[in-house]
Computed example of a mutant assay.
Amino acid sequence: MTTTGYVHGYSRHETRRLGDQADTLARLLHADTVFAPGSRVLEVGCGVGAQTVHLVTGSPGAQVVAVDVSANSLARARARVAAQAPWARVDWIRADLFDLPFADAEFDHVFVCFVLEHLQDPEAALAALTRVLRPGGTVTVVEGDHASAFFHPDSARARAVVAHQIRLQADAGGDALVGRRLQPLLTAAGYRDVVVSPRTVYADRTRPELVEGFTRATFIAMVASVGDEAVAAGLTTRAEWDRGIEDLNRSAEDGGTFHYTFFKARAVRPAAPHTRGARST
């Protein structure tokens, strides 16, 4: 088992944050995520269904199967999709990524969004998914990179709280910087034709929907949520943490700017199955 604890928690606040993130970034991340009618698509680690809504909206004719290890998250996902895309037919399955209850080559496409950052061994996870993906089928992976965040006004205290969040995720076995690793991870896992594209978010007062939906409700909310853990771990004091969050919030005010980069990868499963650790020729 190589999953980690979910560093952001499972609160209703986190559910709302994930929804804000997905809705705000839908066009940026998923406008080109389109699967043919009748194709079988496996969404791995669907969580509360924040991305599932946009997956079924962009590919209404696809047969989507959504998997997550958390029964509570699956219940929230089912409710979200029923409310926002009531016409969609999704099969909801509780299962671990490393023990999927599907036949070999059962799916035409696999979709993985904001999952690898929480895994101790993302390469092993990607390799494991080749079993259920048909030869010639595709995998789509979306991940962020928290170290890509920069902002104005710049602040050492704000940069410190972001660094503490990255550290806490690493201590939990994850990698908040995994976006920059997608190409080598997919290649090592045995996929071919790997193409990675950066997806940049830039927000200032002329883009109020991004300031509110991403800078405030997604990124700052994510960092702020781990304050207690950062203090408990001795990474900072409460006063230092609060000043860092205060400085970070200035990037969402008039005169502030915020930048972040996501990475989206698409790759193909080759005809021959991949054996992890085997030499490629």
Rank of each mutant, 00 (worst) to 15 (best):
R181K: 14
V34R: 15
T275H: 15
A82L: 07
R12L: 13
P184Q: 01
Y10P: 04
R131Q: 06
L116Y: 09
D242F: 03
G58M: 00
V90C: 01
E14H: 00
A83S: 15
V34A: 14
V34G: 05
V226T: 12
Q63G: 05
P153T: 08
V162G: 01
D108H: 08
A77G: 14
D145A: 07
T130M: 08
A66E: 08
V65L: 03
A75P: 06
R17F: 07
A265R: 03
F219R: 02
A124E: 13
A103G: 12
V141K: 03
A221Q: 10
A85S: 07
D247L: 09
A252S: 08
T2W: 14
V223H: 11
G213Q: 01
G255I: 07
H164V: 05
C46N: 04
G179M: 09
A278P: 03
P198W: 03
N249V: 11
V231C: 11
G45F: 05
Q169M: 12
K264M: 10
H109S: 13
R78Q: 13
P273F: 03
L74T: 04
A230G: 00
F263H: 12
A31V: 11
W241E: 06
G256I: 06
V48Q: 13
V44A: 14
V195R: 14
R243N: 13
A233L: 00
L126Y: 03
T52I: 06
V7R: 01
A77W: 04
T130H: 07
L25K: 04
V268Q: 12
P273L: 01
R94H: 02
P122L: 07
Q183S: 12
G58L: 00
F263Y: 15
V142H: 10
R216G: 08
T140H: 12
V115C: 09
R276V: 10
T215Y: 02
C113F: 13
V64G: 01
H164Q: 10
L129E: 03
R80K: 05
R276Y: 10
G255T: 02
L28P: 10
R279M: 12
P153V: 05
L116C: 06
P198F: 03
G49W: 08
A103W: 04
F150V: 14
E209A: 10
D175V: 06
D228G: 10
F98I: 10
D193W: 06
V178G: 01
F102T: 08
G277C: 09
S225T: 08
A156T: 15
R250L: 12
Y202N: 09
S225K: 07
L116Q: 02
R199T: 07
A31C: 09
A31N: 14
V162R: 11
G277E: 04
P86C: 08
V141D: 09
M222D: 15
V161S: 00
F219K: 04
A232E: 13
R12C: 04
R27P: 04
L18S: 10
V65A: 02
D32F: 02
Y260D: 07
A105Q: 13
I166W: 00
E253K: 12
L182W: 01
F214T: 01
G255L: 09
W87V: 15
P184W: 09
A188Q: 14
R17D: 08
L133C: 08
L186P: 04
A149L: 12
A221V: 09
Q21C: 12
V67Q: 07
S70F: 03
E123P: 01
G173D: 00
H259P: 06
A278V: 12
T130D: 11
T257D: 15
L42K: 08
A66V: 03
